[in-house]
Simulated scan of single mutants.
Amino acid sequence: MLFVNPRSGDGAASRTKIVERAREHGVEAVTLRPGDDLRTRVLEVVADGADALGVAGGDGSLAVVAAVAAAHGLPFVCIPCGTRNHFALDLGVDRQDVAGALDAFTQGVERLIDVGEVNGRVFLNNVSVGLYGEAVRQAGYRDSKVRTLAETARKALGPSGRMPALRLVDDTGREHARLALLLVSNNPYAPGLASRPTLASGQLGILVLDTPEERRHPPGRAWSAPHLEVQAPATVHAGIDGEAVELAAPLEFAVRPAALRVRISARHPGAPPVARIPSPGSRRADAQP
C-alpha cells in the first residue's frame, strides 16, 4: 500500500505519475486529500491486511507511516516525492529516480534501521528546538526557510528576545542552561555535513549551541548517546522532521535500534553519499600492491 501526498515537493507525485506507476507494480495507492488524518488512514489499511507500507511525500509524512510500520513489523518503502528528501538521501534511495524507487515493493533489498523517539513520538531525521523550533512555526517558513530562520534568530537573540529555558547535561557532565539551539538526530551526522553515514549505529546525534550571553568556549558541543533528557518549565515548540509540533516537558529522547524494516530498490545505492566516500589512506580492492 502506497500513500501519496500530491502536495509534497510542488506536486512531484503528479509529475512523475506515481499513482499510475504504482498500480503497474501491483501496489495499491491512496491519494491523500486535505483534511485526511494520515495515521488513521494507515491504521485502517493495516487492519485490512496490508503487507507493506510506503509513502510518496515529504519527511513528515514518512515518519507517520514509518511509525505504524515499525509498530506492526511491516516493511517500509520511501518514495522521494518531498522537497528535500532528507531521509531518502541517508537511506540510499536515488532521489532522481522516483519511479525506480517503486521497485522496492517487488524487488527490494531489505534491512533494519533505527528510529528516534521523543516523548514516544517517532522521528526519522531529527528534532530541533530553540531557534529552529520557533522558525518552523512561522507562516513564511515553507517558502523561505533561510530568511525565516535568520529573522527568527535576530528577534530571539536580540536585546528583547526570549529563548525557551531548556536545560540539559552533556556527555562531559557540563550543564547547558541557556540554549540557542538543540538538534537531536536519529543517528549522528558526519562532521560538517548534513548527512548521516549510517542509520543503524544505535545512537542519537546531539548538538547544542549556547546563547551568546553564556560566553562559553567552545559555544556548543556535539556528541552521541542512546538517550537524552531535556528539562523545560513549559511546553516547548519543536520541529520534528520539518513539522511544527509542541512537546510537553521534560523531553525524553531515545533511539530504537533496528526497529524499522526498510526496503530499497536493488538498483539504488542503499547507502548515503557520505558513506561511499573512501576514507583517507584507503585504496580500491582491485588496486595493485
Score class of each variant (00 low, 15 high):
18 I>P: 02
12 A>K: 14
280 P>Q: 07
175 E>A: 14
238 A>Q: 00
75 P>H: 09
185 S>T: 15
5 N>F: 02
210 D>L: 11
169 V>M: 10
240 I>L: 10
25 H>F: 08
245 V>C: 01
267 R>H: 15
121 R>M: 06
215 R>I: 15
90 D>T: 06
77 V>D: 00
122 V>M: 14
115 V>H: 00
220 G>A: 13
235 T>H: 10
264 I>K: 04
187 N>A: 14
76 F>H: 03
100 G>E: 12
260 L>N: 02
164 P>F: 08
72 H>Y: 08
1 M>L: 10
143 D>G: 13
43 L>S: 06
42 V>C: 00
72 H>D: 06
59 D>F: 05
1 M>T: 11
261 R>P: 03
246 E>K: 09
84 R>D: 11
249 A>E: 01
222 A>V: 14
48 D>P: 04
244 A>Y: 00
200 A>H: 13
166 L>N: 13
70 A>D: 05
97 D>H: 02
242 G>I: 00
272 P>N: 09
100 G>N: 08
28 E>W: 08
130 G>F: 12
256 R>K: 13
68 V>D: 03
156 A>C: 12
133 G>N: 05
248 A>C: 00
204 L>V: 06
80 P>S: 01
157 L>M: 12
40 T>K: 05
88 A>E: 02
112 L>H: 14
283 R>L: 12
229 E>T: 14
61 S>H: 01
221 R>E: 13
20 E>Y: 07
220 G>H: 15
85 N>F: 01
24 E>M: 10
223 W>M: 03
144 S>I: 05
46 V>Q: 05
252 E>N: 12
15 R>L: 09
252 E>V: 15
140 G>A: 15
168 L>D: 08
75 P>I: 10
199 L>S: 12
12 A>Q: 08
12 A>L: 09
117 E>N: 04
205 G>C: 13
98 V>C: 01
199 L>Y: 13
33 R>Y: 07
58 G>V: 09
277 I>L: 14
52 A>P: 02
39 R>A: 12
134 E>I: 06
263 R>M: 12
72 H>A: 10
18 I>N: 03
125 N>K: 08
266 A>T: 01
229 E>K: 14
31 T>I: 08
40 T>H: 04
179 L>C: 12
27 V>S: 03
61 S>I: 04
30 V>K: 04
241 D>G: 00
168 L>G: 09
280 P>F: 10
149 L>G: 07
148 T>K: 01
136 V>Y: 11
202 G>C: 12
246 E>A: 11
219 P>L: 07
132 Y>F: 14
184 V>N: 11
19 V>D: 12
13 A>I: 06
219 P>K: 07
286 D>W: 11
98 V>P: 01
150 A>I: 11
129 V>Q: 04
127 V>G: 03
24 E>R: 10
121 R>L: 11
256 R>I: 02
66 A>F: 00
57 G>P: 03
4 V>W: 05
203 Q>L: 15
100 G>P: 10
21 R>Q: 12
263 R>N: 04
73 G>Y: 01
112 L>W: 15
3 F>R: 06
251 L>C: 02
112 L>A: 13
171 D>I: 09
33 R>S: 13
17 K>E: 15
